[in-house]
Computed example of a mutant assay.
Amino acid sequence: MTETELDLRDVPPPERHPKIHDAFQALDSGEALTIVNDHEPKPLFYEFQAEVDSFDADGYEVEQRDERTFVATLPKQ
């Protein structure tokens, strides 16, 4: 599976979701977007689950590396 990574920790919060959606949209089927964030992206998961038909919610993974680093993988069907 090919992955694209976005480090969002230095991106202003209002700009994060549009960047994520644009990067996810650019993926081909079977690829994944990995995001590095300063908080758990649970609201993003629910947003994608509700609004993005090509999001593979069952393949979603998130790992907390330290108290301010969360790495989430959003696979595209």
Rank of each mutant, 00 (worst) to 15 (best):
M1P: 12
M1E: 09
T2P: 11
T4G: 03
T4A: 12
E5W: 00
L6V: 11
L6P: 03
L6C: 08
D7M: 10
L8A: 07
L8E: 04
R9F: 03
D10P: 01
D10Q: 15
D10F: 08
V11S: 05
V11W: 04
P14R: 01
P14L: 00
E15R: 09
R16M: 10
R16S: 01
R16P: 01
R16G: 02
P18A: 11
K19Y: 00
I20K: 01
I20D: 06
I20E: 10
H21G: 06
D22N: 12
D22V: 06
A23L: 03
A23F: 01
F24M: 09
F24C: 06
F24I: 08
F24V: 08
F24H: 04
Q25K: 13
Q25A: 13
Q25C: 03
A26E: 15
L27P: 01
L27G: 04
L27F: 08
L27M: 06
D28N: 15
S29Q: 10
S29T: 12
E31K: 07
E31L: 02
A32K: 12
L33E: 09
L33N: 06
L33K: 10
L33Q: 10
T34S: 00
T34V: 15
T34P: 00
I35G: 00
V36D: 01
V36I: 14
N37F: 00
N37D: 11
N37A: 07
D38T: 06
E40G: 07
P41G: 02
K42M: 12
K42N: 10
K42F: 09
P43N: 09
P43I: 08
P43T: 09
P43Q: 08
P43S: 06
L44M: 14
L44T: 13
F45I: 04
E47M: 10
F48M: 14
F48Y: 13
Q49W: 08
Q49Y: 11
A50Y: 03
D53M: 11
D53P: 07
S54D: 13
S54N: 05
F55E: 04
D56H: 09
A57E: 12
G59T: 04
Y60F: 15
V62L: 03
E63R: 15
D66I: 05
D66P: 08
E67R: 10
R68H: 12
R68K: 11
R68E: 14
T69V: 07
T69Q: 05
F70L: 02
F70R: 00
F70P: 00
F70D: 01
V71E: 11
V71K: 01
A72I: 07
A72C: 05
A72G: 04
A72Q: 04
T73Q: 14
T73E: 11
T73A: 09
L74V: 11
L74E: 02
L74D: 01
P75F: 01
P75E: 02
Q77R: 15
Q77E: 15
